[in-house]
Write a protein that binds this DNA or RNA. Structure first.
Length: 240
DNA sequence: AAGCTCTGCAACCGCAAGTTA
DNA sequence: GTAACTTGCGGTTGCAGAGCT
């Protein structure tokens, strides 16, 4: 055996890695990230896997620009809680703390530049408030419909080079289709209807993608078979 | 058309809190 | 009770694409 132990991978995720991670999380749930990292065969840290999942692969993530509602909500909540990004994110379904953090950063940068330009000391010297930014936004802070913007997902691109009908398959569309109750039989990865382990809906990828999905999972199948001591049976995601 | 700057996003790092043995 | 391990959070950085000069 000439298995050269690779160093832990860093940097951008590949489509293959995404698939492997999705596959593994699907099986084992959104817990024990170090374990997920190991079992998936990815040379990534558990931390890295978690981050990728939470910020990018998790179903239901919204992508694209913040809506005025969201912008306003962020401003309001930030005024109330400060840099408690994860807390703020919980109030914004489909948005991650990272996303909000990034948004806020660029938002503040923009505002700072604007202020520099204007340099009008006559205006209120207090820190930025949502009112000063969006004086005319409606006051209804609600959870708007789960509109799904077209994202630029890695899984999207894996599909790009694939069957022509899959061309430009947006990530969100994938998740939307996933959410439909139709489960492609055969993979046995649906893990039962209510294992309650994760928010992942049954099939992860549209039918055509399952071919690739299967390929991506071959390694894991071995891992699982090799690791019965963990008490996991195929197709049944454990609840942590 | 080419180079430069700006913007948005993805990902890493370090630390703290929580959990488990 | 405590040490080791895992997870979550916030800050920061680097890169790629868009827009501008």
């Amino acid at each position: 055996m000439v298995t050269v132990r690779e160093e832990t991978r860093k940097g951008p995720w590949t489509e293959q890695e995404d698939l492997q991670l999705v596959c593994t999380v699907r099986l084992f749930g959104e817990r024990r990230w170090d374990f997920v990292a190991k079992v998936s065969g990815l040379n990534r840290t558990g931390k890295s896997c978690r981050l990728r999942w939470v910020n990018y692969l998790h179903p239901g993530l919204k992508r694209g620009r913040m809506s005025p509602h969201e912008e306003r909500l962020i401003l309001e909540l930030h005024a109330r809680w400060g840099n408690r990004w994860s807390r703020i994110a919980r109030r914004l379904p489909g948005r991650t703390d990272n996303e909000i953090k990034n948004y806020w950063r660029t938002h503040m940068r923009k505002k700072a530049q604007e202020r520099k330009r204007n340099m009008s000391p006559s205006s209120s010297s207090s820190s930025l408030t949502y009112q000063s930014c969006y004086p005319d936004t409606p006051s209804t802070i609600g959870v708007e419909g789960q509109e799904l913007h077209g994202g630029s997902g890695s899984i999207t691109s894996i599909l790009k080079g694939n069957p022509p009908d899959m061309d430009g398959y947006p990530m969100d569309q994938i998740w939307m289709e996933i959410e439909t109750p139709e489960v492609p039989s055969g993979m046995g990865l649906d893990g039962g209807s209510d294992n309650g382990c994760s928010s992942l809906p049954a099939p992860l990828l549209p039918p055509t993608a399952w071919d690739y999905y299967q390929e991506a999972c071959w390694k894991m199948d071995d891992e699982i078979k090799m690791a019965p001591q963990f008490g996991y049976s195929e197709g049944v995601g454990p609840c942590f």
